[in-house]
Design a binder for these strands. Structure first.
Lengths: 229, 229
DNA sequence: ATTCCCGGTAACGATCCTGTAACATGGAGC
DNA sequence: GCTCCATGTTACAGGATCGTTACCGGGAAT
C-alpha cells in the first residue's frame, strides 16, 4: 500500500487512474492544476507522483523542475503522462530525470504495471523476500535463517536485527538507525539492549558471528569477509 | 562514465548497443550466454546490466532471479530486452522488479535514453560520497579508507583528520583549522593531540604516510606527490 | 498456577581511543 | 656549532565504549 499523488486536469482520466490504483490497494490524492504541487507533496508525502505534462496554467515540466529543485521532494519518483506522439516530451522527460512516462491514451493495466515497477524499484529492499550473503540465507517471508542450509533458531528481535544488517551489507548501521529500524525507538534512548542482542546473535551464529563487525563509536556492520577469520 | 554489462546471444545486437554506449562514454563488458553472469557481475561490478530474456541455455529470467537473490548484486539495475509483443515477458519482467524493459526491435537512441534515465535514478539514491587521491580512497559514507584497494583500520578521529586533509588536497591546513574541523575547538587551545594523531596516521599508512606533509610553523598538507619518496 | 522463553536492565570487566606529559629530534637563524 | 623552538616520538592514564554475565519481569504456552 502506497500513497500516490495524481496531477491531471481531466477528471475522467484521474477517475480512471484512481479506480485502478484503488484496486491495487493504494491511497491517493488528486490535483487538477499544477499550482501548489510541491506544497501538497510536502504535506502528504506521497510515495509516487503521476504528473500530466499538459496542464492549464502551469506547465507540467515546470512542476517537475520545482519538485526536483527541493531536496525534500527530490527523491519522490515521478511518472509522466503525455499526449501520443510527443516524442519531444518523451525525450525531455527522461532527460530531465523522470522515472517513467506513458503516452495517452494508455491502458490502465499498463499504468498499474509501471507504477508498481517504479514503486518496487524505490522500495525494492522491502519486497525481496530472500536475502543471501555468503553462507547466510535470510527467508523473510517465513522469518527463518539458514546457515549453510542449516536452519538457525532466532527470536523475532534477533531476526530483525540480522536481516536489517544483511539488507545493506558492508554498510555501517548506526546504533540510532538500528534502534529505530528494529526497536522503533525514534528518539535517542540510553539502552544497552542492542549490545546484548548482538552478543546473543553472535553466539547463535557460532564461527560466523564474526561477520557482525562492531564499528566502535558508530554502530555495527555485516561484513561478507570478516577481518579476522 | 559508467560500466555496463550486456548479455545477449546475438552479436549484431551487442555490437549495436556497444556502439551507442561507447558514444555516450560508457565502458562495457559483453556476454553471450547466461552462465556465470552473477560471477561476472561480482567481478566487474557494473553500474547497470542489459539483459536479453531469450538466451541459449539458461533463461534470462533465471539469470535475473539469481542476480536479485544475492545482496551483493541485488542493487544493480537491470534493463531487460524482449522480443516484440511478448506481453507476458513484459509483465513478468516488471513484476520481477526489472528497472526497465525494451522490446526488440528498438531504436538505439531509445535504449541510450532509457539507460541514462535508469543510471540517473540509481545514482541519485546511492550517492556514495567517495574521495580519491592516488592510491587513497575515502569512503565517507561507511567511514572507511582504502589504500590500493586494501582496507585500512582507522579510528573516528583519524578518519576525520585524514578526510579533512584529502578533501582539499595540496592546500595547507592550519593547525587552528584542523583543530576546529576535526576536534571542534573553536578557540586557540594549547594541545599536542594533533601532532599525536598525525603520527598515528602516518604509522598506519606505512610508506604512504609521507603524503601527509608538515608545513613547519603553519600546519599540515596532503600532497599527492610527496617530496621525498 | 507453573513453567518456559524472551527481552531488557544492571553491573562488572576488558578493550580501545584519546589527550597529555615528558623526552627526543631536527631545522632555522645566529 | 649552538640555541631555540616546532615537531616527532613514546609512554601512560583516564575515560568512553563494548563484551559478557546474571538477573528480573512479563507474556505465552502448558
Amino acid at each position: 500500500m502506497s500513497r500516490i499523488l495524481i496531477i491531471d486536469d481531466e477528471a475522467d482520466i484521474t477517475d480512471l487512474i484512481a479506480l485502478h490504483l484503488r484496486r491495487e490497494g493504494h491511497e491517493f490524492d488528486v490535483m487538477h492544476t499544477g499550482l501548489g504541487v510541491k506544497e501538497q507533496a510536502l504535506e502528504t508525502r506521497p510515495d509516487l507522483i503521476i504528473l500530466d505534462l499538459m496542464l492549464p496554467g502551469q506547465d507540467g515540466f515546470q512542476v517537475f523542475k520545482t519538485l526536483r529543485a527541493d531536496t525534500r521532494t527530490r527523491s519522490i519518483p515521478v511518472v509522466m503522462l503525455t499526449a501520443r506522439g510527443q516524442m519531444v516530451d518523451k525525450i525531455t522527460g527522461l532527460e530531465l530525470g523522470a522515472d517513467d512516462y506513458l503516452t495517452k491514451p494508455f491502458s490502465p493495466r499498463e499504468l498499474a504495471l509501471r507504477v508498481a515497477a517504479v514503486l518496487r524499484r524505490t522500495q525494492r529492499v522491502q519486497h525481496v523476500s530472500e536475502l543471501s550473503a555468503g553462507p547466510f540465507l535470510v527467508d523473510r517471508k517465513n522469518m527463518k535463517l539458514f546457515l549453510n542450509d542449516e536452519p538457525v533458531d532466532l527470536t523475532t528481535t534477533e531476526f530483525k536485527l540480522l536481516s536489517t544488517l544483511i539488507e545493506s551489507q558492508e554498510a555501517i548501521h548506526t546504533r540510532a538507525e538500528l534502534l529505530r529500524e528494529v526497536w522503533g525507538y525514534n528518539d535517542d534512548v540510553a539502552t544497552r539492549t542492542l549490545d546484548t542482542h548482538v552478543k546473543r546473535l553472535r553466539e547463535k551464529l557460532g564461527a560466523w558471528g564474526k561477520h557482525i563487525v562492531t564499528v566502535r563509536g558508530t554502530g555495527y556492520q555485516f561484513a561478507s569477509d570478516p577481518p579476522d577469520a
